[in-house]
């Protein structure tokens, strides 16, 4: 089959619009996910009563269900309780909740990987608990969990491909819509792949650069 450049060029603006939407929701969702994740892992790390339990339940619930089902519940289920959520907000929220649970696990294993001796040594140097945590434990935990964070970010961007199910005009929606209208399947799918590469390749490359740059924790590896 021969691809037509004319057609692809004609579709470009539609895909570009969809790309912007994905970037917008994706960036908000991922930023929130990191906040939620760090917050939750702190709560678990410092063993704050009651909240700790709630956080565990949240993490297990959202790690063990697919985003598509979560979005359906948020978008179609919650309005029945009087909680009407706009599709874009719903997409960002769903991504944030799913991502938060994954980020929390990633960051927690980072915190756990810092040996207790680090904390003890810092305390013996006369640092307060707070100083020791902020200046000794936290930087190491971050650098250990960066690879998992990068993997999660890529995972979350890929997950945005289900947004079309709650009628957000993302890349999948645009591709499916155009295929349905004009039957230019080859062109539409090629553009779809290209646009996802535009988003994900830079993230993947920058991610591995950051990983290499931050690999200072853990001696002798």
């Amino acid at each position: 089959m021969i691809m037509s450049w004319e057609i692809m060029r004609a579709y470009l603006p539609l895909y570009a619009k969809a790309l912007l939407l994905v970037l917008k929701i994706g960036w908000i969702g991922i930023a929130l996910a990191i906040l939620i994740g760090v917050g939750c892992s702190m709560i678990r790390h410092f063993k704050i009563p009651v909240l700790q339990r709630l956080v565990s339940v949240y993490i297990e619930l959202f790690r063990n269900t697919p985003l598509l089902v979560q979005l359906f519940f948020l978008y179609f289920g919650l309005p029945k309780l009087g909680l009407d959520i706009d599709a874009e907000v719903c997409g960002a929220l769903g991504l944030a909740l799913l991502g938060g649970a994954y980020m929390a696990e990633a960051f927690r294993s980072g915190l756990e990987a810092v040996e207790p001796i680090q904390m003890e040594s810092a305390l013996s140097l006369g640092m307060s608990r707070r100083q020791a945590f902020l200046h000794v434990v936290l930087p190491q935990a971050i650098s250990i969990s960066v690879p998992a964070f990068v993997a999660n970010i890529i995972f979350l961007i890929k997950e945005t491909s289900v947004f079309s199910a709650i009628s957000l005009m993302d890349l999948m929606f645009t591709a499916k819509d155009l295929i349905g209208l004009y039957y230019k399947t080859g062109e539409c799918l090629t553009l779809l792949v290209i646009f996802y590469l535009i988003i994900l390749l830079p993230v993947s490359i920058v991610g591995s650069l950051v990983e290499r740059r931050l690999r200072y924790a853990g001696f002798g590896d």
Binding site: S161, M172, V193
Partner: peptide, 23 residues
Amino acid sequence: LEIVRVMPQMVLLFIVFFGTTRV
């Protein structure tokens, strides 16, 4: 591995489901 890492499964589904029929 890189293809699988970067492409959403949804896109792969579309390619196999819609693309192969057409091409």
